[in-house]
Design a protein around this nucleic acid. Structure first.
Length: 611
RNA sequence: CGGGGCGUAGCGUAGUCUGGUAGCGCGCCUGGUUUGGGACCAGGAUGUCGGGAGUUCAAAUCUCUCCGCCCCGACCA
């Protein structure tokens, strides 16, 4: 199928001249939106009429590459902490992402709606989240002192809409989505639009007569998400995720892979296994515990209070030491044992313990062990002891002696202390066996740009979203929800695509696809004519072309076109023009190439196809 | 909220310790010379020094207070 080379897949209508517009308005087959779009094309795609506001130096507050570049390129302007204005250039990028998201949502049969950003408290009180959600929710009062919030998410609203409409299983499944501004009063907004308080999100909600229906939609959403991020030109990975506070079961996060990502992801290069490190299982080691060789004996470790210090002092690898952590939840204190070189995974530990916990206070710790932190160990403890799986293969290990300045050496389970309870308590590390048995895990960092959940009936039950089934029985609808951080994707895409000159955005999301840079526009009639000709021709082909018709020096034009991330560039100069040629250079190409003026349109179209 | 830091022209900053009435680079405006990688020369505009109060003959500078912002920790698209 031959699609027009326009990125969003929409057909653009070209009009030969403005006079035709008057006629078009009376023509019902051409809607005014498209005419408006045409007008804006005419008036914005010339750099002299556009609004470019670039900076040579980035504002001091920006730390992350994407944040610095977005400010420098004039994509966004800050209004306050976590609040940004999308400037014309940045908005083009945002809109292109939205277009792809919309297209794929529509493809899987989701229907677009637009729900209120301001929501009454009563709805949230129905699910109990008015109090649960916490200070992240911006609560506001109207003139009658009625309580509202600025929506941080829309489960309550959409469930309310659907419960009023759905009577029969015949109306299901139903998936609604919206692209809308959300507000979450983040504790610490940072990194520009990466973690803003106000942000644009696509959120979809599906309703089903049964769990099987939910699973089907969940799968097609999973596939749609994969298509979206592929079309956006991003390197991403879907990972199994913790369901977190939103509740329900079954969940995947979609991460754009970038070193600056806030999440750690464990993945297997040999298979498609991937999980958030919060969830990735550290499988039981295949190794069998060695036979005890040494007798347990006490050694002086004066002042050595960390695994590292003890390891250095005894000249032993940290993997030979057992780390003992005392945690408390309420009145109960539990000892957790980890290999010295491993890190506690608090989510796993909380699941094992069945509740939230924190590290024990020093006073509690002294009461239980009789010594200060730094020398505690499991030998002789009378509290519950849970060991990580990898600890169970250790023999003749070192641990604290519960006596300040002393450690035990040659400690063995079964002989020197009872066999403990065993659980998966630690974060996986690079090189751990993959839980699917297909090789070893690697770690990388990711930016969470999408999250899909099987909510099941958490919200529908709380809000009695019911329908009648084939037997005429009242049933509670199964629900799924599917989010994409649209504005965050802009930042994530830049994190993944930049160089020392600026952004190198994928063509699908770049603000413009092609820059036409004339050399000496005001001097040369030939340059002017060729630039205009190509500009009109590409415009009519539906290509987002920016003609840099400003009276700027060449270096300035190049620098700005590169900074703002336009993927393709044609330079029209007399030098090449006398040979009947123009110069083409891709944003990441090392060198420009001469192309004949007749062939250059086809040449560029070919380049667009490849990216 | 806890810990650290900052607030001087649109952006980047000096001056603050040691009080004497604000400087530099980029950008902007005018004129000229330039014009294939963020030009050069000359001239120019822009500052309630975050707000308020206090100390002082005198405050960007010292004191108090409020506000805003950034960085490190707990939340999440």
């Amino acid at each position: 199928m031959s699609k027009p080379p326009c990125e969003c897949g929409e057909k653009k209508i070209s009009y030969p001249n403005p006079g035709f517009l008057c006629f078009s308005i009376r023509n019902p087959s051409i809607n005014s939106v498209k005419i408006a779009a045409y007008l804006s094309v005419e008036y914005t795609m010339r750099a002299s009429h556009f609004f470019l506001s670039t900076l040579k130096e980035a504002p001091a507050e920006a730390e992350l590459v994407s944040h610095r570049l977005m400010l420098r390129a004039g994509y966004i302007k800050k209004l306050g902490s976590g609040l940004y204005t999308w400037m014309p250039l940045g908005l083009r990028v945002l809109r292109k992402i939205e277009a792809v998201v919309r297209d794929e949502m529509n493809t899987v049969g989701a229907l677009e709606v637009l729900m209120p950003a301001v929501q009454p408290a009563e709805l949230w009180q129905e699910t109990g989240r008015w109090d649960q959600f916490g200070p992240q929710m911006l609560k506001i009062r109207d003139r009658h002192a009625r309580e509202f919030c600025f929506g941080p998410t829309h489960e309550e609203v959409v469930t309310d809409v659907v419960r009023r409409e759905i009577k029969s299983y015949r109306q299901l499944p139903l998936t609604l989505y919206q692209i809308q501004t959300k507000f979450r009063d983040e504790i610490r907004p940072r990194f520009g639009v990466m973690r803003a308080r106000e942000f644009v999100m696509k959120d979809a909600y599906s309703f089903h007569a049964d769990f099987a229906g939910l699973q089907t939609t969940y799968q097609s959403m999973y596939a749609a998400y994969s298509r979206i991020f592929t079309r956006l030109g991003l390197k991403f990975r879907a990972v199994a995720a913790d369901t977190g506070a939103i509740g329900g079961s079954g969940s995947h996060e979609f991460h754009v892979l970038a070193d600056s990502g806030e999440d750690a992801i464990a993945w297997c290069p040999q298979s498609d296994y991937a999980a958030n490190i919060e969830l990735a299982e550290a499988v039981a080691p295949a190794a069998v515990r060695g036979v005890a060789q040494e007798a347990m004996h006490k050694i002086a470790t004066p002042g050595y209070c960390s695994i590292e210090a003890v390891s250095v002092a005894l000249n032993l690898p940290a993997a030979q030491l057992v780390k003992t952590l005392l945690v408390q939840s309420g009145e109960t204190v539990v000892a957790l044992l980890l290999r010295g070189d491993h890190q506690l995974n608090e989510i796993k530990a909380a699941k094992v313990l069945g509740q939230e916990f924190r590290l024990a206070d020093e006073a509690v710790l002294r009461t239980v062990t009789g010594c200060a932190p730094g020398s505690i160990g499991p030998v002789g403890l009378s509290i519950r002891v849970i060991a990580d799986r990898s600890v169970m293969t250790m023999s003749d290990f070192v641990c604290g002696a519960n006596e300040e300045g002393y450690h035990w050496r040659g400690v063995n389970f079964g002989r020197d202390l009872p066999e403990p309870e065993v659980a998966d308590l630690r974060n996986v590390v690079s090189g751990d066996p993959s839980p699917d048995g297909q090789g070893e895990l690697a770690l990388c960092r990711g930016i969470e740009v999408g999250h899909i959940f099987q909510l099941r009936t958490t919200y529908s039950a709380a809000m009695s979203c019911q329908f009648l089934d084939e037997q005429g029985q009242s049933q509670i609808a199964e629900m799924g929800c599917y989010g994409i951080g649209v504005s965050r994707i802009v930042a994530a895409a830049i994190e993944q695509n930049f160089d020392d000159r600026g952004m190198c955005l994928p063509a699908a999301i770049a603000p413009f696809t092609l820059a036409i840079v004339p050399v000496g526009l005001r001097k040369s009639e030939a340059v002017r004519e060729m630039s205009e000709r190509l500009y009109v021709e590409f415009s009519r082909l539906g290509i987002d072309v920016l003609l840099d018709d400003r009276d700027e020096r060449l270096g300035v034009m190049f620098a700005e076109m590169e900074l703002i991330g336009i993927p393709h560039r044609l330079v029209i100069g007399e030098r090449a023009l006398v040979a009947g040629e123009v110069e083409y250079q891709g944003r990441t190409d090392l060198q420009a190439q001469r192309v004949s003026t007749e062939g250059c349109v086809a040449w560029v179209l070919e380049k667009l196809k490849l990216r």
